[in-house]
Design a protein around this nucleic acid. Structure first.
Lengths: 344, 344
DNA sequence: CTGAAAGCGCTTACAG
DNA sequence: CTGAAAGCGCTTACAG
């Protein structure tokens, strides 16, 4: 698979020859070392420019034993949440002088292992990972886990305030007068799936509510909208269906919305629906969706700052756990009607 | 910025010592060379496993002069179109044994140059690029441009069938009886912006229609929904506003939808709206949006296949231009009403 | 202020 | 079938 003719690319030796100095001097001049005279530095830089010299990072990395590279691995780059986290992380990482390698595993463990191996072989300085399943890889560099936690592992774990978020959603539904509240969740094998599910049970209990087991429907491992739709259909076909639904992700919610329509029902008249995660353009949906804003970009910043700190400090501190706050955005799928200005 | 203590990582020499062979033999055994005896191979592999050896790609790349790396640069990783193209490309690239480096430039030329430089310094074998502005970089490896074309440059250029797409949209609007058709477009400095704008003019002309200059409103360079909204406001405040709008991207369309609502108007009763690109969950919008499906994943596959071919063939063939087909998805923002099953 | 030399961790002709 | 040696393109003590 390897073939490549960059043979023509000038090397540092070429630059040195062109400038009439040794490679050592050329190297230092290009780095702006104060030990090199201004005249020489200028001469080397000019030669470099003339030749169109592009330093070879591969060689540099090998020599310095550092690639200035950080890897970010996510289950699905096409999911808004992940792409926003990536952008936040990339922003602070690049500002700190690191390059970022992004990999999308399509939620398969095999691709995740492959990505981890690749990054490791490329000698990344650290990685930020939202793992797809259980983490089991002998990575020798600092790692921060996000979204899907691996308690006490890595230098840090960062996740959204899952239980608090669900409580926000349920409290609002109860305020609307609902007591038959159903739940559509992701796989409990993931942190988000598990904590939100637990949050659902705990919130209900705290409010003195009880619901039948069948009110809890879990979707597939991919949190797909199709899975959300199927779960909603199951809920709707119950003898006494819930009057309000909490959904544990935007994709699930979108699928659920679709199912409600296909059943010939209307939101929020026939069922109310609220969701974790704020779907893109949630206010343009029919009806506009009441959901949880999670400030994903910020989460990326936090995760990468934590990684940067570990990279800087060399010290092995115990894994910190950070929770990023969530915020309720009231629109109208919950039953509120004053949320969208200009709407009749 | 560089600090790292992977000093403990075992090297090939360690493996060789552990197995009691020379580094050369260890290297060959690990590669599965037929020249090494089965017994030795097994011994080396066992030693490798015992030590948890992870080959150093940096060193390998430097020696073999090939990184088996391909870079993909896009203006915004958070845009569905780009992330889908990336996934399509990544799929075929990884299957061919390449690793993929993704960079998001946030639409700034400075970050794009930086990304290009980084990739070049990492000695990528090739790059796939949707450039943010004009391309002007002395990249010495094969490059395929997508979305935003650089005619006759690179090994290939691939874009959607922009004009045909706009024609599809306009023909449908005309079929609905519209003749006062407005246009909200992206920046004409980009291929998509320009070709769709031209397509708009040409389609109108082909249908014998003429519209005032003010019916054409261009949004900002980022194709932002805010820009789409502002353009829609301008259109709506015209003495005789258009009765139907063609929008040149989903983000623009979403912003336009929002503006229509905020003006207290309803789609499609007061204005019809159709769009290039199919927004995620377009069928759940209010109203469901009539739009163009572009098969973005396929575009990524095409782009990367073309790159792979260039990487394989070594020959410098003239830059091919590929157009990927688009398809009209009729929902109801255009005025059709039978598109969503189950809706009253 | 500058240079010669060693070495990062591999792979691969070249010998045997 | 196996090994000694060279070299990929840099950087950096070590000398001067």
């Amino acid at each position: 698979m390897a073939r490549n003719r960059q043979s023509a690319l000038p090397t540092l030796a070429d630059v040195a020859a062109e400038a009439g100095v040794s490679p050592s001097t050329a190297s230092r001049a290009l780095q702006g070392s104060p030990r090199i005279s201004d005249a020489t530095t200028r001469r080397v830089r000019a030669a470099s420019r003339r030749l169109g010299y592009q330093p070879n990072r591969i060689a540099r990395s090998l020599r310095t034993q550092s690639a200035d590279l950080v890897g970010i691995i996510v289950p699905d780059i096409g999911i808004g949440f992940y792409s926003r986290v990536i952008k936040g992380a990339q922003d602070v990482l690049e500002r700190a002088g690191y390059r970022v390698l992004v990999a999308s595993t399509e939620r398969t463990e095999a691709r995740e292992r492959a990505a981890l191996r690749t990054l490791s072989e490329h000698r990344v300085d650290g990685v930020i990972l939202a793992c797809a399943g259980t983490f089991d890889f002998d990575l020798r560099v600092p790692i921060v886990f996000f979204d899907n936690l691996v308690p006490h592992a890595g230098v840090a774990n960062v996740a959204r305030a899952n239980k608090e978020g669900i409580e926000l959603l349920i409290a609002h539904l109860i305020w609307h007068g609902h007591s038959r509240i159903g739940y559509i969740g992701g796989p409990p094998s993931s942190t988000s799936g598990l904590e939100r599910l637990q949050g659902f049970g705990q919130s209900l209990e705290a409010h003195g509510l009880e619901v039948p087991r069948e009110y809890v429907q879990l979707a597939d491992a991919a949190w797909s909208s199709a899975g959300g739709g199927a779960a909603m259909e199951r809920l709707l076909s119950l003898p006494t269906p819930p009057t309000a639904i909490v959904t544990s992700s935007d994709t699930l919610a979108l699928g659920a919305m679709r199912a409600v329509r296909q059943a010939g029902l209307r939101l929020p008249r026939d069922v109310a629906l609220v969701s974790f995660d704020d779907p893109a353009f949630g206010e343009l949906l029919d009806p506009p969706m009441t959901a949880l804003a999670c400030n994903d970009w910020h989460m990326g910043e936090v995760a990468s700052s934590l990684l940067l700190h570990a990279l800087d400090s060399h010290s092995v501190s115990p894994s910190t756990e950070v929770r990023t706050p969530v915020e309720l955005i009231v629109r109208s799928s919950c039953g509120c009607s004053n949320a969208v200005p200009g709407l009749p």
